[in-house]
Write a protein that binds this DNA or RNA. Structure first.
Lengths: 336, 336
DNA sequence: CTGAAAGCGCTAACAG
DNA sequence: CTGTTAGCGCTTTCAG
């Protein structure tokens, strides 16, 4: 390994000068600078980031903690962070939290040990107090997809409520009156809010969402299938099916077809998230676009700013709005 | 920041002892160890990874370079690496190469600066010489999804040829005789090999794949749609459509339906990769499963081994075989 | 404009 | 079993 000393020796200067050249400090003579640069080139010298980090106490690294990188949503999130990281010359450190409180904490600690000052966290299972404490300890911590009032200016989140309402309005506008819902068994956060948004909208026009018309299962394709089967078994009648997310919507479409029902002719289906899969299924899914890549890039930018000791956070909040993307899974209600 | 010195001072021992406790060296008295541990706990001390890395010249970090993390395939790859990393106590450093030779090199360099000794690279555009040179410079470099004979023992790759043949045999066994292909415009590597595998299999039974029956486009959903449109416009007749990958297959299914053709009744479609989207589309896609997560985990393991100076690589190769997963997009050829 | 020197936090001989 | 000591590669005053 070639070190700064080697460069200094070969170039006949001190290590301080080499360091200056590396960092483009204006304090070096042109001839000298040129010579050093040449030697760096020739020797193939590359500064040791660890040593730099040790002394300067910052290694320009941004960490991301998500449940599972292989899921499209989280991969896209990571990609958004990567975009900002690249732009700002930061490196990206990743860790899966595996949907578990303890491994989530482990992941965060591992990043902290690494001197990672900016951390983007997508936390689903840690409780608010833990997160608030964490935010205190880590100035550069930003939460994505979660809103905690006490640390509002560290949360980059989505307005699920209005998104769900917007979806419901759209269905209503298409003449649908009989709604059913397939949602996640974890009725804690997002799922609950989205269902709530739907309900409030329906109530606004004098409609009621019967408890029977809500089926819960896991938030994936299989869950969507299973939930629809249950709905059908219950004998629930509906022309409009709202899914907690795209995956469940896709599963629902499968189950509907398998039961001899056509989508969208017999049942219109509405998703949420706008995953790549939403354009893969047939009919293509009408859904709310979750701008996760944009949000993640934004969050990364925010985290980097916050990690700077000079920076004092304001009281600004960071709320994003999902956007309706019309495709082919919803049509006007057909009288039968 | 609390350092090892603080701990040593408070515990009334030397930093060496603290270091020993941290690393579970057996050379510390029980009472002493307990005391130090307690102090570490109380002070909330966490070792500075950068300093550790600086002195021990290894920071237990594994790097991954893929074109774009937001794509399901690469997210899954990263997840596979993460699995091994977690298991072995390594951290995961990520960098997108953005499908570009230069940024790929930048990404690798950025990892190397970071003292990252194990690197998993999914390279599509760098030429072999560059890669061979890189492999020389970086003992812990492993290539995924690419085979270069000169560094065969550093390549973890898939037998595309036999995979394509297996797919073709399956189609043949289902009575199909009229084949068409939608493939990527980049006929350099995988796409070329897969088409080749198909051709050789067809020729084996006296069938010929007409040049007209091959349509090229981009390797995504839109590309699949466009390619099928072209096939149709050319007036090509086929009951079996082989796609370069799942994305193109899904686009093909869309275009087929849009043209009034039913899948699989009129045309059977075969994918490749087995992305999550393959279970989202309708009909669900029959495809070859690309065990990328498993391969990535394996590659990570290999990279870590290789990065150990003690380890001398054998001449073993690392070839994986794709597996056929039967779903609903292929059925027996229907006489019309 | 450039060099000398101190030290970042930690590990690893080497003594004792 | 434990402490002393010498750096790892780099940045950064402080002098010159």
């Amino acid at each position: 390994m070639v070190t700064i000393k080697d460069v200094a020796r070969v170039a006949g200067v001190s290590t301080a000068t080499v360091s200056r050249v590396i960092h483009d400090g204006g304090q070096v003579g042109d001839a000298c600078r040129a010579r050093v640069k040449k030697v760096i080139q020739e020797l193939g010298y590359r500064p040791n980031t660890n040593a730099q980090a040790l002394v300067s106490k910052t290694n320009h690294t941004i960490g991301v903690v998500t449940p599972k990188l292989s899921m499209s949503f989280f991969g896209t999130l990571a990609s958004g962070v990567e975009h900002t990281a690249r732009e700002k010359g930061y490196k990206l450190l990743m860790a899966n939290s595996l949907y578990e409180t303890q491994s989530e904490l482990d992941a965060i600690n591992s990043l902290r040990n690494h001197n990672c000052q900016a951390i983007i966290l997508h936390s689903e299972y840690s409780d608010e107090d833990t997160l608030i404490q964490l935010a205190k300890d880590i100035p550069g911590l930003v939460l994505v997809n979660r809103y905690i009032p006490a640390i509002a200016n560290r949360c980059v989140w989505l307005d699920n409520q209005s998104g769900a309402q917007r979806a419901a309005e759209y269905m209503l506008a298409h003449g649908h009156r009989d709604f059913a819902v397939v949602t996640s068994i974890y009725q804690n956060r997002d799922p609950g809010i989205r269902v709530q948004g739907l309900k409030s909208c329906l109530e606004g026009v004098g409609l009621k969402l019967d408890k029977q018309a809500i089926a819960e299962s896991t938030a994936n394709i299989e869950g969507g299938e299973q939930a629809v089967k249950e709905l059908l078994a219950r004998g629930v009648k509906f022309s409009a099916l709202m899914a907690y997310n795209d995956l469940m919507a896709i599963g629902a479409i499968h189950a509907l077809f398998d039961a001899g029902l056509r989508v969208p002719e017999d049942v219109s289906v509405f998703g949420f998230d706008d995953l790549p899969a939403a354009r893969a299924c047939r009919p293509r899914l009408t859904t709310m676009h979750y701008p996760i890549e944009e949000m993640a890039a934004y969050a990364a930018d925010l985290a980097i700013k916050l990690s700077n000791p000079e920076f004092k956070p304001g009281s600004q909040t960071h709320l994003f709005i999902p956007e309706l993307v019309e495709r082919n899974s919803v049509i006007d209600h057909q009288e039968s």
